[in-house]
Nucleic acid binder design. Structure first.
Lengths: 336, 336
DNA sequence: TTGTAAGCGTTATCAT
DNA sequence: ATGATAACGCTTACAA
């Protein structure tokens, strides 16, 4: 009763079925405009009837294009995996890839596989690659840009190197954060800065400094952390120990801000009454803390999506914006 | 001065260089044992010198194997992306894939792409697939198991269906958690259970019940949540409102346990003095809560790794354990 | 143990 | 606008 069992149909079978040559079928499949509509639709019908699906390998071999895009993520400190950001970026990437015929190949890069990865990327296995920030040291990919289309998420420390980057505007975000503090009546603003070896660390500190200067205020004390909760606590203690007065703290990320919470409280300071605290990242922790942390939310999904869009442009048109910056959004909660 | 620029070397070039046939080079590349060592090493040297890398597409076309494994994750509620578990699973998968020549193709499945995904999997684009639990509804993949090697992470509700599964032993973990509570002097143990439509929800409740029964204790009250913090708070209120006495709460996950914290405290109960609280998952929140939450840690990295191992066995030997269960570990912190 | 040669399913270059 | 017909780089019977 049912349709006769059939092997996986090939382009050749479709050609026979439609009474045309393989070349024509190929043209129809690839949307070549120079095919007579009558024939095209006949071929399309055959394709449907036979349930034909092109063979990727054959196509790739003949066309010298893989139809695949690599997503390279650093395994470094396995941080990426606990990082909700990464997930959002991937979600954004996936959402645009969904509408294309590209396939997403994931490459987790550990130090031991760095060479393997580079080879993989340059040996024609993929049509392009998305590199999510290694924060530091991704300059090693710089040269690769010449051999295969590459888009970076997050700018390397040394700034655009001719590579295509999509990044969040950390400077503007930090400015917005500190301005908000000022608008809410704070005048002596301290900061817990991130590592000055990473772009976000640098930019967020610079944004703080700039706004304070422009407002003609006296900067509060500065302490440095490494983006961990623990370092945030330590930094908060340093701030307190500095002897300088301050009525607000701008932390370069939520974890450090939250690390500071208990320290400030132990010093007898109430948040936000005695001291305002501003985070950065809108991490899950910021919602559930006491009080909930006011923070800057970064558009990570959009960042992923934009990376994918740029890469596809690069692959298909050999053209893309060298740098796209996305704006963060301030999330008002209860710490300011 | 430098070595002459050369095109991407092919197997044929290696053959010429080594003075053998292409077949022999192919054998060496694929580790066929029947190659004379002398010749084999000569070929290997040529491969090195020419910097030869096999062309995946060609290989795939000729061998009818893709060298790719799909990782299928549900986009559902975009929960996956905020879920640190997922990241750990991927890390585990990646760590074993690293030592193989398989490539990891990531497929984010939204409802609108379900068919596309199924087609993709069955059309020979991949040699096998890893399906991370959709909790519910992944039975739709059941039939696919016959057409392409599949390994599921987390068992579907209806139990093993002939498919290969790797899962954490939720039952044993729940038993261990409740036993620990008993060992620490608690005798009236309430529980905040998860949805009874999900395997983990069911098993964790069952473990709680079993241990209490075996210990000859009177069960404390039961309330249900949906694994969210909010539902945990609500459930805690129900527990309190039940009028039944209890000196401990076993929650089916950390978020619900933590959701209960403030509720219990408002009721004048001190943790762990008046009431012990036991979580499940070892989520990041459990470390930073006040007091830190004692909980069950699931080996998600190992789960990912085991999934990958089983799939590779399935692909290469057509054999695998139908069900592998991994044991959770109790993490002692301050809430018991 | 090694070589020969026939595919694998497309794309792409020519003619027509 | 369409059709032959080479590639594309490798695997794999089968022969030697």
């Amino acid at each position: 009763m049912g349709p006769r069992e059939m092997k996986k149909p090939t382009l050749e079978m479709v050609a026979a079925h439609a009474g045309v040559s393989r070349a024509t079928v190929s043209r129809v499949v690839n949307g070549t405009p120079t095919v007579e509509p009558t024939i095209a639709s006949r071929v399309k019908r055959s394709i449907d009837e036979l349930n034909y699906v092109p063979n990727r390998a054959a196509r790739s071999l003949a066309s010298n294009r893989s139809g695949a895009i690599a997503l390279v993520v650093p395994e470094s400190a396995s941080k990426v995996f606990t990082d909700p950001f990464f997930g959002s970026v991937v979600q954004g990437i996936a959402s645009v890839m969904e509408d294309t015929d590209f396939t997403l190949t994931m490459i987790i890069e550990s130090e031991s596989t760095a060479d393997k990865t580079r080879r993989y990327l340059t040996d024609g296995n993929v049509d392009g690659a998305l590199i999510v920030s290694h924060h530091t040291g991704d300059h090693s990919y710089g040269e690769l840009s010449e051999k295969v289309p590459l888009v970076f998420g997050g700018r390397p420390v040394e700034g655009p190197t001719g590579a295509t980057c999509v990044d969040v505007d950390n400077l503007a975000a930090a400015r917005a954060a500190v301005s908000y503090l000022i608008d809410h009546g704070r005048s002596r603003i301290a900061t817990i800065a991130g590592p000055q070896t990473m772009r976000p660390g640098i930019d967020r500190l610079e944004g703080w400094r700039a706004v304070i200067e422009e407002a003609g205020l006296t900067p509060g004390p500065v302490a440095y952390g490494d983006f961990t909760t623990l370092s945030g606590a330590r930094a908060a203690r340093e701030l307190l120990a500095s002897g300088e007065a301050f009525d607000a703290v701008f932390a370069a990320n939520d974890q450090m801000a939250l690390g500071g919470y208990p320290v400030l409280r132990e010093a007898g300071l109430r948040i936000p009454d005695d001291i305002a605290v501003m985070g950065f990242d809108d991490s899950p922790f910021s919602e559930t803390s006491e009080p909930p942390l006011t923070t800057m939310s970064q558009p990570m999904i959009e960042l992923g999506a934009e990376m994918a869009r740029q890469l596809i442009r690069l692959i298909e048109d050999r053209t893309a914006e060298p740098l796209t910056v996305l704006q963060a959004r301030l999330v008002e909660r209860g710490s300011v």
